[in-house]
Every structure is written in C-alpha cells, then in structure tokens.
Nucleic acid binder design. Structure first.
Length: 393
DNA sequence: TCTGGGGTCCTAGGACCC
DNA sequence: TCTGGGGTCCTAGGACCC
C-alpha cells in the first residue's frame, strides 16, 4: 500500500494567533493585514522578530532578524509582544481537533505536526487532496486561522510540500513530482540544510536541490561527513522515518537568560544561576526525572559562547545539590568576562536513580521532604509563590 | 534600542582501560 | 630502547530546527 503522510503547518502561527486574540478582545484591526511582527522586548534585549505578517514579509523582513533592522526595512512596522500561554492553548486545540482524522500523529513543534494517513482511504476515500482541503477549511472556519497542508509518501516530502506557496494552501510532493517541484529549489530550502552547509555547497558549485541530488556520495561524504548521506537522500526525496508520537520525556532541560545588561560581578551572576537552578530542577522533578550531567553555559558581550559541564556519579533532582555543582562549574569556567547570557542545562536524564550512595555521601531525606512541600506549593499557587531564603535580596 | 530561548544530534579530541 | 590499538566515557563546540 502506498504510504500517505500529511504535514500540517499553521501560517505565521504566532502572528495569526495574536491577531485572533486581539480581535476577540475588541482590537480594531486585524494585524495579519498590516505590516506587523511579533517581537521580543528590545529594552530587555530580546529584540528579534518571532513572526511576521505577509505584508511585512513583502518588505523583506525575515524571522529572527533584529527588530531594529526590520524597522529599517519598513518604517510603519507595528510590533506586538508574544503571548505564549495563548499560543499553547491554540496549539492544543488544533492538535486535539486533528487527532480525529488519524490515530497516529506526531507533534513536531507548537504549530506543526505529521499525520499518518496510510490506509485512511477506507474512511475518507482516496482523494487525499480533497480531504486535505476539507481539513484546512474546517480549521479556518472553526478556529479562524489558516494552515498549509503538505501531502506526500514520506515525512520529509510532506514537510517540504507544506512549505511551498503560502498561506491557506494544499500541496503534494509525490515521488513522481520530485524533479518538477523539488529539484529547482535552492539547496538552502532543503530541511536540515542550514546556512553554513548552503554556503559551503554554493562554494562547491552546487546551488539547486537537483544539482545536489546528482552529486556523487563520495564527494558529499568527503565534505560533509555523515551529513553528506542525508543530503543525497533528502534531495532525492528519500526518507523512511516513521510518524512517531513524541514521548513527553525530554533528553535535556535547560534555561538561559539574556541579562538586562552585561554582568561582570560574581555575586550578580551567582544570583541568576540560583534562580535558574531553582526553575530547572523544579521542571525536572515535575517530569519525575533525574539528571546525571550538569552544565553551565555563557554568552559574553562579544557574543562568544562557551560552556562547562560535569557528570555526577549518581543522577539527582535536588536543587541544592545541583546548585552546589553549578557553583563549582562556575568557579572553574567563568573567564571573568562581561556576560550577556547565562544558563543552566541538565542532561543525561533518567527516570530511575540508583539508590546506591557513594562512600562519603550522606542521606538527604530532609532536603527531599522540604523540596516536596515546596513543589506542592508551587503547583498550587504558581511558580513564584515560594522562594528560598537565598533567593531573596 | 543590534543580535531570544529551548531543544536534538553530531564530531573531535582526550583520558583511561586492557 | 621507540612511541600498538580498540573500546568506552566524557567534554567542548557547533549545526540545525521552530
């Protein structure tokens, strides 16, 4: 049986969702119809473009560029702040609705998912384009925002197809259409082929996906190692990965903050680190996980990144133990440069801890009990309801 | 008023063991 | 009297995604 995969992608998700929110609350205009963007707060140095309206796009504004630069391109650009809790709500509603059409769905991000549609012709008939239009139109009617739907025989091609002309469109990219629809595109359009690789390919004289598809594997392997094999397969529309529902278990949990100004004082940085550890270890406990690897990450005033990490003998989820190790890492790694962004990352996560205590480790049941109580309070009254003594000024 | 935040995966190189 | 070599674990850094 021919495999059929749908990829659903919300058009300008953050901007569309904000537009709906604003209209619902009596805002007089639809920000989808004017030159507008969703952007972070520039004063706290979060000034980048998170989403753009189709009109803003016409001015050449791209996602992730600075708001400052976006304004240079369009003088009467309107900037609106993100509303993440509302986005999450919209996302949840959408996926809930979509799940009625297929028992097998893979949520890929807040605004994208894959649906395994193989075999559904018994239910919906074998005109998949018609079905996709039905779904797309129902979403528009029911929720007020538009989506693109890509139809193909595998995930990669479905994803590429949904990226063709936007908004509010259905596209197919069957194997028989690769040459006509995929090959003329620039290599940078290929999924998982980013700026660096695109530049390198261009320097090697390879500009289109079609050219890439006809490059010898040995040549690509020489220049791109294991990625070379991926590039060749992907450019030929080959992908045999399955639609797999995400398990909710993360491989890592991290928090990082861009500071209001560059911090140079040890005490200031330590205070931020403590808050971050408090947050991140709470998240860890909420997922009932334990971390074995603890890392500190920096971005300095010159935008250079560096990091330092250690691996524990026994995985933990205790705030104090994690903080102790973060302080150690901080002592060992901070170059005493001015820090723009500092973060904490927990990885090597496991569900169970070996209860074996190392030789000199003391039992910390006390700490465990206190933490449980504090977590319960956080659950009930919100994350900021309770703070440890050392977190206060 | 220049340049976010949260992820996953890969690679190179060093330490260490047998 | 010359510097083997495979395997594993760990760290740092980087590419890429939304």
């Amino acid at each position: 049986m021919k495999r059929i995969i749908f990829h659903i992608d919300v058009n300008n998700a953050f901007l569309s969702w904000s537009a709906i929110y604003l209209l619902k609350n009596g805002y007089p205009k639809d920000i989808r119809k004017i030159p507008s963007i969703i952007g972070g707060d520039e004063k706290s140095r979060h000034g980048i473009v998170l989403a753009k309206s189709p009109v803003a796009k016409k001015y050449g504004i791209v996602t992730a560029e600075t708001i400052y630069s976006a304004r240079q391109k369009c003088k009467n650009l309107e900037v609106y702040p993100p509303n993440y809790s509302w986005y999450k709500e919209q996302s949840k509603k959408l996926f809930q609705y979509l799940s009625q059409y297929s028992p097998l769905m893979e949520q890929f991000s807040i605004d994208e998912c894959f649906m395994e549609m193989t075999g559904t012709s018994l239910l919906y008939g074998d005109d998949y384009v018609l079905l996709a239009h039905k779904i797309k139109n129902e979403i528009k009617e029911k929720f007020g925002f538009t989506v693109n739907i890509g139809i193909a025989e595998n995930k990669l091609c479905a994803k590429m197809a949904s990226d063709f002309e936007k908004p509010d469109k259905v596209h197919t990219l069957y194997q028989s259409e690769i040459e006509e629809k995929l090959w003329p595109l620039p290599v940078s359009d290929l999924f998982m082929l980013g700026k660096k690789s695109a530049q390198k390919l261009n320097d090697l004289g390879i500009h289109t996906i079609g050219e890439l598809a006809h490059t010898p594997l040995s040549f690509l392997n020489r220049h791109f190692k294991s990625q070379g094999s991926y590039f060749l397969r992907a450019s030929n529309g080959v992908d045999d990965s399955k639609v797999e529902p995400r398990d909710d278990k993360n491989k890592c949990i991290s928090i990082s903050r861009t500071l209001p100004y560059d911090y140079k004082r040890k005490e200031d940085l330590e205070k931020v680190l403590f808050q971050e550890v408090d947050d991140v270890s709470y998240q860890l406990r909420k997922q009932k996980m334990y971390a074995k690897t603890i890392a500190i990450t920096y971005k300095n005033s010159l935008f250079q990144s560096y990091s330092h990490q250690l691996t524990l003998v026994n995985a933990t989820n205790q705030t104090d133990l994690i903080y102790k190790n973060i302080l150690l890492l901080f002592e060992q790694s901070w170059k005493e440069d001015a820090i723009r962004n500092i973060g904490v990352r927990l990885s090597d996560l496991t569900e169970d801890v070996k209860e074996q205590l190392s030789l000199f480790e003391t039992e910390e049941n006390h700490e465990d009990e206190m933490e449980k109580v504090m977590d319960m309070l956080k659950e009930k009254f919100g994350k900021d309801s309770i703070q440890r003594a050392s977190r206060k000024e």
